[in-house]
Amino acid sequence: MPRLLTSAEIARQLAELDGWAGDTKALQRTVEAADFPTAIRIVDRVAEVAEEMNHHPDIDIRWRTLHFTLVTHSASGVTQYDVELARRIDEIVREHPLA
């Protein structure tokens, strides 16, 4: 089982991420895409990466607004897997037009 990150570890790594917030329970980011098709393309690409990593985010889609929540459910909190997925989501988001 992956190790839970401490509050200090999470805070340090959040400072390196784009638009993420969180604590030991979960990491969250909201993204507003340029339009609905772009939002779906972002979600589709995130799904591909999540499958590659075998680590899946919770995603709420509201028109062109995407809410991502990352938590390692098997560990009941935030692990390095969540931070790495957040980095990968940031890369994907940068490749798409935002509102």
Rank of each mutant, 00 (worst) to 15 (best):
M1Y: 11
M1K: 12
P2Q: 13
R3H: 12
L4D: 09
L4P: 01
L5C: 00
A8R: 15
I10G: 03
A11I: 08
A11Y: 09
A11W: 09
R12V: 12
Q13S: 10
Q13L: 10
E16M: 13
L17E: 07
L17W: 03
L17R: 05
L17P: 01
L17F: 05
D18E: 15
D18L: 11
D18T: 12
G19C: 05
G19L: 04
G19Q: 03
G19T: 05
W20M: 04
W20K: 02
W20P: 01
W20I: 00
A21Y: 12
D23I: 05
T24C: 10
T24H: 09
A26P: 08
A26F: 12
L27N: 01
Q28L: 13
R29S: 02
V31R: 03
V31A: 03
E32Q: 15
E32L: 12
E32M: 12
E32F: 11
E32Y: 11
A33H: 03
A34C: 11
F36Y: 15
F36G: 08
P37K: 06
P37Y: 05
T38S: 09
I40W: 12
I40R: 07
I40K: 09
R41F: 08
R41G: 10
I42V: 07
V43A: 11
V43N: 08
V43M: 07
D44G: 14
R45W: 08
A47P: 04
A47D: 07
A47N: 06
E48Y: 15
E48W: 13
A50K: 05
A50M: 03
A50W: 00
A50G: 01
E52D: 14
E52V: 07
M53S: 11
M53A: 14
N54R: 15
N54Y: 09
H55S: 03
H55I: 05
P57E: 07
I59L: 01
I59G: 04
D60G: 14
D60N: 15
D60L: 15
I61F: 02
I61Q: 05
I61L: 10
R62W: 09
R64C: 09
T65A: 13
L66Q: 04
H67I: 12
H67K: 14
H67V: 13
T69D: 06
T69Y: 04
L70W: 00
V71A: 14
S74D: 12
S74H: 07
A75F: 00
S76G: 13
S76C: 10
V78F: 00
V78R: 00
Y81P: 09
D82Y: 00
D82N: 00
D82T: 03
D82R: 01
V83G: 01
E84Y: 10
L85A: 06
R87V: 00
R87Y: 07
R87I: 04
R88I: 06
R88P: 05
I89G: 02
I89C: 05
D90A: 01
D90L: 00
D90Y: 03
E91L: 12
E91H: 11
E91P: 06
I92H: 02
I92T: 05
V93E: 03
V93K: 02
V93L: 03
V93N: 01
R94H: 13
E95R: 10
E95N: 10
L98S: 13
